[in-house]
Amino acid sequence: MASLREMAAAPQLFAPGHRMCAGCGAPVVMRQVLSVAKKPVVVSCATGCLEVATTIYPYTAWRCSFIHNAFENSAATMSGVEAAYRSLKRQGKLKGEMLFLAVGGDGGTYDIGLQSLSGMLERGHRVVYLCYDNGAYMNTGIQRSSATPRGADTTTTPAGTESAGKRQPRKDLLAIVAAHHIPYAAQGSPSHWRDLTRKAEKAFEAGGPAFLNLLAPCPRGWRYDTAQTIELTRLAVETCFWPLLEIEHGRCKITYRPKQKKPLTDFLKAQGRFKHLFKDENKHLLEELQNEVDDNWKDLESRCGEPG
């Protein structure tokens, strides 16, 4: 486990000068994950904010090798890169070990890239897949995805007189991923950098496919002040909206338990996308959302067993 000082001393693979918005959560998780890559790493990225804003020709923010192919095929693309590595290595044409990191936003992972991700996991490629989850199609202007939380106001689920935002709960992607019985899958938050980077280290060393679902707030999509990015992820964890957990060879473990679980409204009220929920006519929804979080947490605890 590296200290921040040690992490800062390592070569920084993610350069400044990228054009992600001020306060964006995605580069924070990328920097944290890459800072524990102990071998040369190849990154692939699905079309999306991170991809477009880091590689505006002729500039690239990547100091490691990077490939963008299309929206739905980050995992398939990296499958090919990793297959090339295995082949060339076996033929003695390559020396040294390398790491493979496929990246996608929630749109590119939960939705359009789900098949490609499933294929990569099932085939057993030694690739870490990182989903930076900001809960909507932010790059195209905040449209709902299957990762958007229930009640969120997006441009395709706008709150209106007949609508209180998105109707459906988030897809449980981690469970879908875990059903592939891969060596390692985890959920992390940049606020809890020690937990996140430890998970990234485990993922890189998993010896098979690994998956990281990382919360990455979007100031524009979530509508909050840019300075609050990390604080919001902390609230997401402290309210149990975004549990920190890992599933290692099928064994589920909660890696952080809030000492005093905070009410979900602490997380919701800090964001403009949930503002309409605080109107009188929507109060019942707040209750339902709280129940949903409580039920999920209970379910998680029953799967993971008591803290040990």
Binding site: A8, A26, R31, W193, T229
Partner: peptide
């Protein structure tokens, strides 16, 4: 180093 680890812009 918390500022360092949380800075989106390196």
């Amino acid at each position: 180093f918390l500022c360092w680890v949380y800075c989106p812009d390196a």
